[in-house]
Design a protein around this nucleic acid. Structure first.
Lengths: 338, 338
DNA sequence: CTGTTAGCGCCTTCAA
DNA sequence: TTGAAGGCGCTAACAG
């Protein structure tokens, strides 16, 4: 292994000088800089991060924590896409990215503790939001830099987080349905414990209210991402005395299940029932019909969270803030005029 | 930060003793071990990896390299799933996982070099296989431990890799079609540059030949994962004078596109055309009809690759080998009897 | 502008 | 069974 000393020896300067040219210290003459750099190149020098981190107290690495993989949600194309978003800025800033690998909540907590105490990373991005999350409590107590993708359940003001305006998105997409002549609009969402679900549902609600449409609890269904959940939801809706003519579904993957079950039951989309969705995952484009969906810019959610986190790790005093990533609606073929 | 010295001071032993109990050195008396451990617990001691790695020369970290994200393939649920598989053994072995973040081939190469030279990781898992891959060449030249998920293009014997028997899988699923009475069977695969495609296609071919069925080039189509690709493939097939009655598609995500296009063109699956697929991604179960598909045990591919890699990093002399993960066919509703 | 000195936290001989 | 001493590779004062 080529060390700083080796290049120092070859160049005839001191190790600290070499260290300085690595840091591009302005107080080093261009001449020696050039000389040293050539030697580094020539010898194939590469700085050892462990040595560096040991003294520098900064790792230029960030940890990304996935939800416990008990959550089937992991199958959601959402994750590769946020990871890409995070990766893009990580890479641009020359950071590295450590991914959590725990499966249960406890394992994940232990892992995060190891990351923090062992100084594996400078900061952490949480890709989920849970009530009473021990991981988050731990991070807060230790005052360790972290950012959440999504919306924290409490202390909104104290936690930097990156989210969409899901309320308005839900409202707007529902309004679109209303403008298309629909009045009997149902809602299928994930667990009520998730803020995404809640916010989108509130928006849906609000649109109905504003339009003077009735609030029908039987039209609101909360289910799992799983097929069985989607199936059950649809069956419930179809067995209603008055069937909805449109459904707002909070996730493209769920929409795929809903779509299938709907058509299996002989109802055609959008002829019989219209569908709108969220996320604009790749598959929303290749379903039949292609889904009208809210593009929440997943990549951007990731990128922004990484930017915000790095900013915090560099300067701990930057105030926490809420970052809203804009969305836009992609109109395709899953909605019919009434 | 609590260091080894702190617990030494509190316990009244020397730092080296503390270091020894951390390593669970047998030559330390149970009494002092107990004493030291309690102090560690009490003070909240956690070992600093950078200090450790600096001397230990092993990082207990492995790098996972994704394909360049230009590849839309990243949207494939395959990746989260291998990651989970890798993560499971990473976690069990108390390793950590660094994910590549580069977008282009060059960026990725630079990243891998940084990982290797800077001793970020002990070994690397390649989640893709490319001809003339500079990353792989680099790893080989440096004799740096790595494992590939999939099949390398050359030096099969020299490179440890984890793969399915895609030939046999392709053959078996095609035989199933034949056994169901199909004789005009088409094939839609990804790029011919991918071994997965090639192997599965060879298997398909072989099944046809064995059954004495004709080899029709017009029935074999290579396309992208993208919608447009799937669409074009299907259109080509449907415009043929003699339409196939069944199609082998090499990926569930592609199948979704094929399915959509097929039904848009008014052909029903499986009534008019049957479909079989590969991977058994979550979505293969929620399409309509649910897909008969080869479950390649993605999670296991990941887990095995991690195991093999760790084995190699621990003992560089273990010979390279080929690890075959078994597959099995999941029968669902996308195939009809002829 | 550059060299010297002193660690960062840990592990590992070598002695005792 | 334990302690003392040195060093892993790098950076950061402090001197010049």
């Amino acid at each position: 292994m080529v060390t700083i000393k080796d290049v120092a020896k070859v160049t005839g300067v001191s190790p600290s000088t070499v260290s300085r040219v690595i840091a591009d210290n302005p107080r080093i003459s261009p001449a020696t800089k050039k000389k040293v750099r050539e030697a580094m190149e020539h010898l194939g020098y590469h700085t050892n991060i462990h040595a560096r981190n040991l003294v520098a107290k900064s790792t230029k690495a960030i940890g990304v924590i996935m939800p416990s993989s008990a959550d089937k949600a992991l199958q959601n194309p959402f994750f590769p896409e946020v990871l890409r978003g995070i990766g893009s800025v990580i890479h641009e800033r020359q950071y590295s990215l450590t991914l959590s690998s725990g499966e249960t909540e406890q394992e994940i907590l232990a892992e995060v503790q190891r990351m923090v105490y062992g100084s594996y990373v400078d900061g952490v991005i949480l890709l989920y939001s849970r009530v009473d999350d021990p991981v988050m409590s731990f991070l807060q107590e230790r005052d360790f830099p972290f950012v959440m993708v999504g919306k924290p359940f409490e202390k909104l003001q104290e936690i930097t987080h990156v989210d969409n305006d899901n309320f308005t998105a839900g409202k707007q997409i529902t309004n679109y349905l209303i403008a298309s002549g629909h009045e009997k609009i149902a809602f299928i969402g994930g667990s009520k414990d998730l803020f995404v679900t809640r916010d989108r549902e509130s928006g849906y609600q609000s649109a109905l209210t504003d339009a003077g449409l009735p609030n029908n609890d039987a039209y609101k269904i909360h289910t799992e991402f799983l097929k069985s959940g989607g199936r059950e939801a649809v069956e419930r809706l179809l067995s209603l005395p008055v069937r909805p003519t449109a459904i707002v579904v909070t996730d493209d993957l769920m929409s795929l299940g809903v779509l299938s079950t709907l058509e299996e039951s002989g109802v055609q989309v959008p002829r019989d029932i219209s569908l709108v969705s969220f996320n604009n995952a790749y598959l929303s484009e290749i379903t039949r019909p292609a889904l009208t969906t809210v593009d929440i810019h997943i990549h951007e959610l990731g990128a922004q969270s990484a930017r915000a986190l790095i900013e915090r790790t560099v300067d701990k005093t930057v105030p926490s803030r809420r970052i809203i990533v804009p969305y836009n609606i992609i109109y395709r073929n899953s909605v019919s005029e009434q």
